[in-house]
């Protein structure tokens, strides 16, 4: 992870501030930074989103490709996560470092989305045992500036919301041989049900309290953090402890509660932005990286 070198007094300043619910940048412990979200930024993906959370800059592309269902789940499609922590995000990723972090983040997302109903995988099935849609979710870390997990989860949700999968029909003749036919109308496509797609809220333990949306500096002061994935209804889908420190059980429950609260609010805020953007339709002037 990107290292920020802080001196002891600097750390102390941050810890004390958190204690007083006043963080270095003026936020309270449960306040999020201002995030910029834009979808449909990469035209040749099925869905894409770019999220900018202060310095953290993330680009997610979802590509829907035809594949075969997994043997144990013949009537479902599946998602593949891949996180590319290339060295351009921060020079520290040079060599193996980036790869390890990428694998770690990807595995976290597999866990988060492993819950039965986070995404309706059955809707991704084209015909059982033979064809299904595979959604490749590729995360590109452009600049790494703290709170990666949350930012990525926002970008992933936005990209999935933006994803449009072409509708296909399976033609079957008497013999049972199947042919896949694509629709001629580019607007004729499947959208994913976003109701249960979770967002991740990382709660970093700093001193005796915990903060959400930690900056790089705050992350340097935190020994342990808790990853909580929350659906828009406030249901927890997974919890994961991160970092080398330890947490006492009581504070975990506390953190979960905060996570739920913040997560729900985050869902509402994100959904509002996405809906607004969608209502503009094709007339929307795309900003992308030019803004």
């Amino acid at each position: 992870m990107a290292a920020v070198v802080l001196s002891e007094p600097e750390k102390l300043y941050i810890v004390h501030g958190v204690q007083e619910d006043l963080r270095v940048d003026g936020r309270g412990c449960e306040d999020y930074r201002c995030a910029e979200v834009e979808t449909d930024v990469v035209s040749n993906t099925s869905g894409s989103a770019r999220v900018k959370l202060e310095n953290t800059d993330i680009l997610v592309g979802v590509k829907a490709e035809m594949g075969t269902p997994k043997i144990e789940k013949p009537d479902e499609g599946y998602l593949e996560f891949c996180v590319d922590c290339s060295a351009n995000a921060t020079p520290e990723f040079e060599g193996r470092g980036g790869e390890e972090l990428g694998a770690e983040i990807a595995s976290a997302f597999y866990t988060v989305f492993s819950s039965e109903n986070s995404i309706d995988l059955k809707s991704l099935c084209i015909n059982p045992r033979e064809h299904c849609w595979v959604l490749y979710v590729d995360v590109l870390l452009l600049v790494c500036g703290g709170n990666l997990y949350d930012a990525i989860s926002i970008a992933v949700k936005a990209a999935l919301f933006n994803t449009r999968i072409p509708k296909v029909r399976v033609l079957e003749d008497e013999e049972g041989s199947k042919e896949i036919e694509l629709s001629d109308d580019p607007y004729d496509c499947i959208r994913l049900n976003m109701e249960n797609v979770p967002l991740i809220v990382t709660l970093s333990k700093i001193g005796y309290r915990h903060v959400v949306d930690a900056t790089l500096e705050e992350e340097a002061c935190s020994l342990a953090s808790l990853l909580v994935s929350v659906t828009s209804k406030g249901a927890l889908t997974s919890i994961k402890k991160m970092g080398r420190g330890s947490l006492d059980p009581e504070s975990i429950f506390e953190m979960m509660e905060t996570g739920k609260k913040v997560g729900k609010a985050l869902h509402v805020a994100l959904q509002k932005v996405l809906d607004e953007e969608e209502s503009l339709g094709t007339s929307r002037q795309k900003v992308g990286f030019l803004g």
Binding site: V42, N44, L59, G61, K63, E65, C82, D84, Y136, D138
Partner: peptide
């Protein structure tokens, strides 16, 4: 990027 081409 993995999604830069027409196919992943």
């Amino acid at each position: 990027a993995p999604f830069s081409g027409p196919e992943r």
